[in-house]
Computed example of a mutant assay.
Amino acid sequence: NVDIFLAEFAQRRDFEDIELQLHATDGTLTWHAVRAGNIEKSNGRSLRIIGTIKNIQALKDAEACRENKERQLLMQSRCDPMTQLLNRSAMQQAIEDQINSQAAYMFSIIDIDDFKSTNDNHGHVFGDEVLKYVADILRNACRSNDITGRLGGDEFVMLFRADFTREEADRRLISIIRRIREGVDTLSIEARVSVSIGAILVTRPGLSFLDVYRSADAALYEAKHKGKKTYSLSVY
């Protein structure tokens, strides 16, 4: 509204710069830079307002493009290119931030059983397919505020931000193992895929990432020792 626009500048003493969107003749909105101010007043009332207006839509488009590229580069620096989960460094930082601010959570290390044999028997292309398959199931098992990442090789990590009971933690881990074992018909080659999980259920603050990782890694070793395709859970 032109009257409102002019009235706004009429209240100002000095020249000022603003950006606003204006309708073009075809109805589209384009960004403009406006510099305007009073040059003559009488009894406190503006008699004349002068200024310039410049179409800056091209600059806005270039700025949006640059910001989009920056977001893409940030995502690439944080994501594992194979699985699109968080990479090791981004995952560790996110988990460190979380365990420093929350007392209750469950941290898990997930390892694909006999993954070397899968690569040897079916090739690395199929091995990559298995990695993506497991990553998708882990991603879908998480809520928006949980953390999932690829530790490296055939190992993944998950952090559930919740105060679970032991029974709830057991059910969640069993569900993940079952989903991975039962969904293999979606793979291009008929092959068995299973995982072992080492998990730590934390109910008190004060543990570092290294403490949590070592405890979950020890639990993973126990799960492997029990025959794989299962989990081991410790409570702290």
Rank of each mutant, 00 (worst) to 15 (best):
D128C: 00
A169D: 10
T52V: 09
R178C: 12
I200R: 02
G152H: 15
R78C: 03
T25Y: 14
S101W: 00
A135H: 02
E155D: 07
A216K: 06
T186E: 07
I56W: 05
D185C: 15
Q76V: 06
I197M: 05
R66C: 08
D217R: 00
H124R: 02
T148W: 08
R12F: 14
R143P: 04
S208R: 13
M82N: 02
L159S: 08
T230E: 03
Q102F: 12
Q21D: 11
R192G: 07
F160T: 13
F107T: 05
A94H: 02
G51Q: 04
E40R: 05
K132F: 06
L220P: 01
L210T: 13
H23S: 13
E19N: 14
F164V: 02
D185I: 12
H23Q: 15
R139M: 15
I147A: 02
R88P: 09
K41A: 09
D17T: 15
S194F: 03
F115H: 00
A90L: 10
S175K: 12
F5E: 07
A199M: 11
S232R: 02
A219K: 03
S101M: 09
L6C: 12
D217P: 00
V184G: 04
M158F: 04
P81L: 10
F9M: 00
D114A: 07
K228D: 07
I95F: 06
C65Q: 15
R172A: 15
E222S: 05
F9P: 05
G152N: 05
D163Q: 04
M158G: 07
S108H: 00
F126P: 01
D128T: 05
P81S: 11
L47D: 10
C142A: 09
L86T: 01
L220R: 01
V184Q: 10
R171L: 14
Y221P: 01
I4H: 10
R171F: 04
Y133R: 08
A62T: 14
V2H: 07
K116R: 07
F160A: 13
A94F: 05
R66H: 02
A62W: 10
F126K: 06
A10W: 02
H122I: 03
I4S: 04
M82Q: 06
V184E: 03
D154M: 12
A62F: 00
R178I: 04
V134A: 01
A199E: 05
E155H: 04
L210G: 14
E182C: 11
Q72H: 03
G127D: 02
R150G: 10
L220H: 08
V157E: 02
Q93M: 10
Y236V: 12
G44A: 04
V34I: 11
I147E: 06
D61N: 15
F15A: 01
S188E: 09
L210Q: 11
K229S: 10
S196R: 01
Y221K: 01
S215A: 07
R171D: 14
Q57Y: 08
I147R: 01
R150I: 09
G183Q: 07
M82I: 11
A64T: 14
Q98V: 13
F5N: 04
Y231Q: 07
A135Y: 09
I180Y: 06
D111K: 11
V195T: 00
L59H: 09
E40P: 11
I109W: 00
Y221A: 06
T186P: 01
R48N: 07
N140Y: 12
V202M: 06
